[in-house]
Structure formats: C-alpha cells, structure tokens
Amino acid sequence: MYTETVMDHFKNPRNVGNIENADGVGQVGNAKCGDIMKIYLKINDDIIEDVKFETFGCGSAIASSSMATELIKGKNINEAVELSNKAVVEALGGLPPVKVHCSVLAEQAIKSALYDYAQRTNKVIKGLENFNPEEEEHSCH
C-alpha cells in the first residue's frame, strides 16, 4: 500500500517534537478529519534553521509531515513557501490517491507556520497574500 520511503518516514519520522520560543507555529486539520499537523519553525535571517512537527494522523500523514520538514530545513523562507504538496508526494515516491490529502495538509501546515512568522515580524512573504490559516485549521482536505 505504501512505498518504502513512506514507511521509512513513518517508522523513523525526522524532526519530531516542538521548539521552545519558535519564531513561527502553524497548525492545520482537525480531529474530526482524523489529521492534525503542527509545525514549529526556528528562523534566523530568513533561513529556517530548525523545524519540528507534531502530527495526529495516519501513516501517510506522519510520513508527509516528516518529509515536508526535511524538504524545508535550511531553506530560505521564500523557497520554503513554494513547497507544494506535489513535491512532498514525489519525494515520498508516491501516495495512494485517498492519501494525497495528507501531503496537502503538510504543505498547508508549513504555509501556516510561515504565515505566523510573517505576522509576528511584519514581513511580507510572497505567495501568502491570500492565505487564511483559520480556514486551513477547520477544513478537511
């Protein structure tokens, strides 16, 4: 059902946990849908120095969170904001069609954390102009 990469990231998820005094925190999904992702960012000079996640969800949700954090770690915020769910799916070697929503959730969680950072620092991040974290927190993908 899942690729080896998905199973690897599920069994040994990277960047699990939280960050004290994070510069940006984003949470998307809800328990009703069965998936919640929370992303913590430590940002220095617009570079994502550290990223951690906490996820309630199925195997692909955990693997998507893990992969997404790996893909943005060390990146500039303007690069990170461009991370698409497709890139997450690709990096995982594919997801079953019914699980693609997990990768969407991962993309949204990162956008949400970056949005939080932008709000706190009064920065404008290109690509987040129409982002609404409230909406992302309550919709099932």
Binding site: Y2, M7, F10, K11, C33, G34, D35, F56, G57, C58, G59, A61, I62, K99
Partner: peptide, 26 residues
C-alpha cells in the same frame, strides 16, 4: 486517545499482529 488508528495498525503489522480500526483512514 490522541492517536489515530491506521498508524497503530501499521505498527502492529510490523510486529506481525493483524487487527482492524474504526478510523476513517482505513
């Protein structure tokens, strides 16, 4: 509480245990 069924099933399967879940993900 606080965890999701499919994740549990996948980890159980790695230990050779077959069960089922009421989770939507399955």
């Amino acid at each position: 509480k606080y965890v999701e069924g499919e994740s549990i099933l996948l980890l159980l399967d790695m230990e050779g245990i077959a069960a089922s879940s009421g989770s939507a993900c399955t």
